[in-house]
Each structure stands twice: as structure tokens, then as C-alpha cells.
Amino acid sequence: MITIEHLAKKFDDHQIFSDINLEIQTGEIIGIIGPSGSGKSTLLRCLNLLETPDAGTITIDDQQIVAPHITKAQRLKFRQASTMVFQQFNLFRQKNAWENVAEGLITVKKIPKDEAKARALQELDRVGLAPYANFYPEQLSGGQKQRVAIARSLATDAKLLLLDEPTSALDLELVGEVLQTLKQVVLDHPNFTVILVSHELGFVQEVASRVLFFDDGRIQEAGTPDEVLVHPQHERTKQFLARFATQTVHN
């Protein structure tokens, strides 16, 4: 279970959010939607401590951090509770696909290289990229890169998956394969908790168990995909969805 209490973050004078409260049950798939610049990424990055919150507490299962005073050791340990998939993939470009996946296993989990490689190949296989194990990122398409990044995340064994617009840097024809992979990940790991920030409203509707509409540093509306995406109550949600009217939100 994940509990976020009174979470606050500002950059310089710009208050991104000041009081986020959220409780997420294990196994939930949370879809976060909302306008650009509303702080969705910042929230996700706080959960992984890529950004240090100014105040508030985050509890992931038995681990709790109280911002902003977080020790180095706490930070390293807390980070391992979750894993992040980035919009820009962020693969290690000097490492080939399996080395990318194995990196955390070797350095963080101290698993011997052979074993780490075997595990990496297994994870690459899951995302359908076993034949590309020796390819460097520069040899892969955007969709393949993101699937390697997903494999890298899965290899960490973290039970909380943070996905920050995993398909929005992709060419349209490559979005499908990544969404397909993500759907499979979700099916394969029913015990994973997933927080997905995405503008792919159709996909959010399909996989999410709960949807949050984020705006102005606040969770403006929350509910089932049907409640938020099809029958929104709040004016802002309606306005936001109207702008995405071209996208398929199935009725």
C-alpha cells in the first residue's frame, strides 16, 4: 500500500503542489491525466525521490520517508521500492540492451554478472526483445528502446511501477507495441501497483482501475475510468477532456 500525506513541492517560487493526499492499494493501476505543467511528472518524481519533496510523508509498504530530511541511505533504499519508466527512455547509451537491464542487478543487487545476464535476457524476452539483447540503444527504434527500459524496470523487482508518459516521445506507429507490452506487464504482475501518467486516454481507460485528474497541483477529480473519463463531474475535467475529444474514449 502507498500512502501520500500532505506532500508539497515547489521550484524556487513556483509552488507545484502544496498538499497532495493519496492512498493507493497494492495492485491498483492508477491513471493520472491532466494538463501540461500541472505537476504530474513532479509528483511521480517525488515518489521516486528524483525530486526531494519540501514537506509531507510518503509510505510505500513498510518504508516511510518524511520530507525534506532524508538521509542518503534512506533515499537509496526507498528508491528501490519503486521503478520508473521515462518519457525519453533514458537508456544507458554505452550499454547494449541486456547490459542496460542487468546494470541495476549487478551494481545495486550485487548479483554475479552471469546470473544478471540470464535474468536480463529473461526480462528482454518478456518484452519480446530477446533477439535484440546485443543491440545498443542507437540501433533500436523508439518503441524498442522503451521496451528495453520497461524490461530494465521489471528486473529491479520493485512492486511499484511509475510510468511517466511512456509513449509520448514515440512516433505514432510505435505507440501500439509499447502499450501492448505495458498491458502484458500488467497482466503478468497482478501484484504490481502501477501509476501511469499518460495522454493516451483510451489506454488509461482500458487498463486503469482508478483515474485521477490532476490540475493546478491538485487532484481535482478521482474515480473509476468510467466516472472520470466518460462522466466527469468537474468543469475542468470536462474542459480538459473536450480538448482530447479527437481521442477515443470508449463509451
Binding site: 528501490q80 533514458n90 546494470e103 551494481t107
Partner: peptide, 17 residues
């Protein structure tokens, strides 16, 4: 690239690693 460093951070790698 900051992105690679962030990816390494999320994996739980130490600053030195």
C-alpha cells in the same frame, strides 16, 4: 545526459557507482 543519471538513480545506484 541527465536522463541516464536519473535512470541510474532510480535503480538505486550510489553516487559513486
Amino acid at each position: 545526459d541527465d536522463g541516464e543519471i536519473e535512470a541510474a538513480e532510480t535503480l538505486g545506484m550510489t553516487g559513486w557507482q
